[in-house]
Design a protein around this nucleic acid. Sequence first.
DNA 1: ATTAGCACTCAATCAGTGCGAGTGCTAATA
DNA 2: TATTAGCACTCGCACTGATTGAGTGCTAAT
Lengths: 355, 355
Amino acid sequence: MELDERKRKILNAIILNYQKTGEPVGSRTISKDAELKLSPATIRNEMADLEEMGLIVQPHTSAGRIPTDKGYRLYVNSLMQKEQLAVRELEAERSELMLKRVDRIEELLIQMAKILAANTNYATMITGPKYSQNKVKFIQLSSMGRGKLLATIVLTGNIIKNSILALNTCVSDDDILQMNIMLNSNLNGLSIAEINLGLITKIKSEAGEHADIASKVIDAIAEAIDSGDGSVPMYTSGTPNIFKYPELTGGDQASELISTLEEKEQLSTIMEYDGGCSDRHDIQVYIGDEVPVESMKNCSVITATYELSEGVRGKIGIIGPKRMDYRKVVDTLKNTMSQLDVIFKNDEQTDMAED
Amino acid sequence: MELDERKRKILNAIILNYQKTGEPVGSRTISKDAELKLSPATIRNEMADLEEMGLIVQPHTSAGRIPTDKGYRLYVNSLMQKEQLAVRELEAERSELMLKRVDRIEELLIQMAKILAANTNYATMITGPKYSQNKVKFIQLSSMGRGKLLATIVLTGNIIKNSILALNTCVSDDDILQMNIMLNSNLNGLSIAEINLGLITKIKSEAGEHADIASKVIDAIAEAIDSGDGSVPMYTSGTPNIFKYPELTGGDQASELISTLEEKEQLSTIMEYDGGCSDRHDIQVYIGDEVPVESMKNCSVITATYELSEGVRGKIGIIGPKRMDYRKVVDTLKNTMSQLDVIFKNDEQTDMAED
DNA sequence: ATTAGCACTCAATCAGTGCGAGTGCTAATA
DNA sequence: TATTAGCACTCGCACTGATTGAGTGCTAAT
C-alpha cells in the first residue's frame, strides 16, 4: 500500500486533532478541516487504508480513529519536520533562567525542570551531571582543633566536597601545611582513573607518620568523585500535570505513574539508555511501548542530553501522554539546551559551588 | 446530654472500625463487636444520641455512621490514651535508620521520611533543620590561583559552606594567612545576630587593602547561615500512598493533593505554625478543617518536632485521611523522635557534613 | 475518482426496578 | 426502667432495557 501525499495529510490531521482533544477523531471532523477539500466519505476510505497500514485504529467499531504507536513514530520521524513554520513563538520562551540568580548548578537544573514542566504541561525529570570524568583541581586540609581535620576537595567544574576527618593522633599546623603541599603536588590534575595503587602507596610513604590521614583524604576524594557516579541524583517536577490527561489517569494508572515518578529508580533506566546517536543535543523520542518502564507504556518520553563541560553530562526528560505535542517539546528542549550552553559558557569560570 | 462510658465505647468502636474499612459502620456491626453485649437496637439508640452530640453523622439516610471532625478530636484528646496497651509492637519498628550509613544529615532525614511513609502507609513531609541559631566555628580562605579564592565556612553542627570568590586584585599567600587569622579571631563563636555593622566595619578596617575580600567573605557567611533560614528545605515522601484511600482520590482531590505536596509552599504553613506547647517532642494533630491548607481539608496531619542540638529544630509531618490511625502514627512518631535523639547524641561530634 | 445515501454498530445516557443495608419507632419483655 | 424484637421505611447501588447519536462501511450515482 502506497502512503501518498493525501494519506500523509490525513494522518497528520488526525494526530494534530487528537493531540488537542484526546478524543477519537472522525471523518467528518477531518473533512471540515479545510486544507484538503474532500467529503467525509473519501476520508473514510483513506482512513480505512491507514488503518490497514497500522497507523491508526478505532478504539471500538463506530468510533473515530486514534493514532497507533507506529503512527506517531512515522509522524515524529518524517511528518513532523515538514511543518517547521512559525515555530518561532518558542523563541519567546520565558528565559527566566537567565534572570533568576541561581548559584548552584543542581538548583539551576531543578529550576529548569520546573520551568519546562510549567511551559509544556507535562512532567519532567532531570539527572544531575555525571562527574566521573572530573579531575582533582585543589585540595585543602585545615585543622579544626580537637583532633579534627577539614578536607576540602575541589574538582574541575568547581565541584566542592568537604569531609571532616577524625584523627586519633595530633597533628601540628606545620605538618598540615606539609601534607597540603604534598597532596596537591601529587594529585593535582588527576582523574579518578589516574589515582592508582602505585600512586597511593607513594603518597602514603611521603606522608610518613601521617599515612593514615593521607589514606583518609584519598577515601574522601574517591567518595567525592563517586557520589556523582554510582547513583546520579534524579529530580522530577510537574508530576501533577499528568492529571490533565484523562487517558493517563484511568484505573490505577495515575497511582502507578506517580509512584514511579516519585521513586525515581525506574526512571534511570530511561535516562541511562544511550541511543548511540551522539549528536550535539542528542534528542531521543520514546513512544508508548518503546518506553522501557512498565507503568509508562502508554506515555511517551522525550529526553535530551545536556553538557556542562567536556564530558560532564546529564539528561533531561519530558513525560507526557502518547498524544503529546512532540514538535513543541522537541523544539522547547532544543531551545533550552542552547540556553544552557550560553549560561555555561558565561558562567564556566564563576562561582558555582556544590556540596 | 451526658457522654457516659457506654457511649464512649461505641464511639471508639465506630472510629476503629471506620479506620479499617473506610465504610460507614452500622449498628449491627458494632453489636457483633462483642466487648459490650448489646443488640443493634440499643446501639442504634445510643448512636442517635452520639449523632445529636455532633460526634458522628450518616452520609445519607439509611447508611451507617462515620465520625465527624469533632468525634475524631474527642478520640484524639481523651479516648485514645485509654488503650495504650500492646502498642509495643511498634518497639520492633525496623530501625533501619541505625543500620544504614547515612553521613549527611539531610539525607538521614529524607531516609527517615521514606521509612515512615513505608511503615504508616501515609504521606510524609519533613523540613530541614533551621540553622539560624548557628554560630561560626571556623573560616578558611585558600587561594585557588588565577585570582580565585576559596572560602570555606564551618558552622556549629558541622555545617560546611563553600564559596568561590573572584578577585580583581592579586593576593599573596601571606596576605591570605593574615586574613585567615584576622577573620577567625573576629568571628569565631558568633551567631548571625552578633555580626553587626560595627563589627563588620572593624573587620574591614583591619583587612586594610583587602577590605573587599573581607566584605565578600562576610556576604558568604550571611548566605551560609541564611540559606537555612528564609526558606527551610522541605521534602516529601510516600505521596502515592494517598491513592490507597478512596476518600482522598474522589474528583480532583488526588490531583490537588499531589500538587500541593509537590509544590511544598503551602505545606510550610502547617509546619511553621508553632502550637505553643513546647513539650519535649511536641506533637500536633490537625484534623480535617483544622488543617490550614485548602486542598487538605479532608486530610489529617500530625506533626512532630525534632531537635538536633540546642535550638536546631525541624518538623516532620504525616499526612493521611481523616480516618488515619492516630494512635499508631503518634506512637510511631514518638518512637522515631527518640531514635533520632539517640542517633544525634552518638553522632553529635562525628563527621556529618553538609554543603 | 469522488460523493451522496443508507443501513449498521456501539458507547453513552437515562429512567425504571429490585435489592439490601441500615435506620427509627413502637410494642413487648426482663 | 432499660433492653430488645419486630416492622415499616429510606435510600444508595447495581442492573436492565430503551434511546440517542456519532461514526463507520458499502453501494450506487455522479
